[in-house]
Design a protein around this nucleic acid. Structure first.
Lengths: 220, 220
DNA sequence: GTGTAAAGTGAGCTATTACTCATGTTATAC
DNA sequence: GTATAACATGAGTAATAGCTCACTTTACAC
């Protein structure tokens, strides 16, 4: 490392022609590839430029510093995830408690399955840290879940609502996050989501929730 | 960074006199302090030596490289935690399921409350990574919980025992880990442990677990 | 076709890091 | 008291990181 003081900041120059937009994309693609394949240690600006097939000069024409490059990578990944979050929040409004929990989990699962490896690396990256990035997801989830729980207060048997929100959100985040690398099959099949839902709803309502028979038939 | 290839390795020289043992302790104390207060970026060997009030030469007399210093820090912290783990495992053997879960949580809480800040930083450190270190705790917990669950199989209503073990261990770890920074009061008072126990036991047995009025929520 | 701005280049500067080694100081052995 | 090993020092080295800048090439406007 040589210097590291600046924060993210906006691109030094906004790409105007298609050529340069392509360059930016190439750089970001190379950055992601290096991060995923070789880890953060190998993630140097020179290496990114080399792998992207452009000169470092070009890289620094569009990214004022290393953190900005990382930041843009996060921005784009986040953006790719957030499509549909509003739709889910909407669905949750008029849904029963169990469905709210299920939706929260589903959303979380979806977020983790958009380029899972990149997601994982980004969440472990030091500079802006999990504290700035992954925590942002959790925080947004927390506030949505909070709202939903308040609306369904009557159905919830837990005395301390804050604690309930904390437990639910962090359980979901952690279980799903780890499942990406440890139980991917259960994640994709929905088995894990169903099990966690049962656990959380049971806890929240204070009543046992019977297991559905396999797969996840919606029927009733 | 200049070089970084070697793995942990043992001390270059074993301190024989009290003077040098004190030096080693001072170095480790400074290392911990820097990690906790200024983060991993500030954790350079020169800085550690400076803050410890010894020369870098001395540092490298007892630690063959930077990772070894970090490794020893982890070793000592781990050691401080593991006192009593056997006693707990023993207690768990003859305990009912609910008690097994509670003991697992208690152990985890205890582990996180031995120098909580250091614990957190160590678990986020890149080199040996959470993958080598914190995961080691979880893994040991996983295997103990597995054994305990198998012994109590009859009481457990969850079909997939593997999944149950996975859910329980990762929930405990994540919830407790985050609680250190987000809900320390509930962690220390035992409220969080009780709540998580209720949630997990309810899930495992398939029956709702009534809230106790233990600890601090007096009358009924 | 010519002027101008965008896009692209890469040698090299500066800062910093992990680590060495020749040398000095203190404690123990006898 | 002296020899010897343990302990301690810190200026210096090699590697590598982030980033600059003087310069060339390409595309667009007219």
């Amino acid at each position: 490392m040589a210097r590291r003081k600046k924060t993210v900041a906006s691109p030094r120059k906004l790409p105007e022609q298609d050529r340069s937009r392509a360059t930016v994309d190439t750089i970001l693609a190379a950055a992601a590839r290096i991060l995923v394949r070789d880890g953060y240690d190998a993630f140097t600006t020179n290496r990114v430029a080399e792998k992207a097939g452009v000169s470092i000069g070009s890289l620094y024409q569009y990214f004022p510093n290393k953190d900005a490059l990382l930041g843009e990578l996060m921005r784009r990944h986040t953006h790719a995830i957030e499509d549909g979050i509003e739709a889910m929040a909407e669905r949750a409004k008029s849904a029963p408690l169990a469905e709210v929990v299920r939706i929260a989990i589903e959303h979380n699962v979806r977020a983790h399955l958009v380029d899972p490896e990149l997601h994982r690396v980004l969440s472990e990256v030091p500079p802006l840290g999990k504290l700035d990035w992954e925590a942002a997801f959790t925080e947004r989830m927390v506030s949505r879940v909070r709202d939903a729980f308040e609306a369904k207060r009557a159905e919830i048997a837990v005395a301390d609502l804050d604690l309930a929100v904390y437990l639910v959100t962090h359980t979901v985040e952690a279980v799903v996050h780890n499942a990406v690398t440890e139980r991917l099959a259960d994640l994709k099949s929905g088995v894990l989501a169903e099990e966690v839902t049962r656990m959380l709803v049971g806890y929240l309502t204070g009543k046992a929730v019977p297991a559905k028979r396999s797969a996840r038939a919606a029927a009733e």
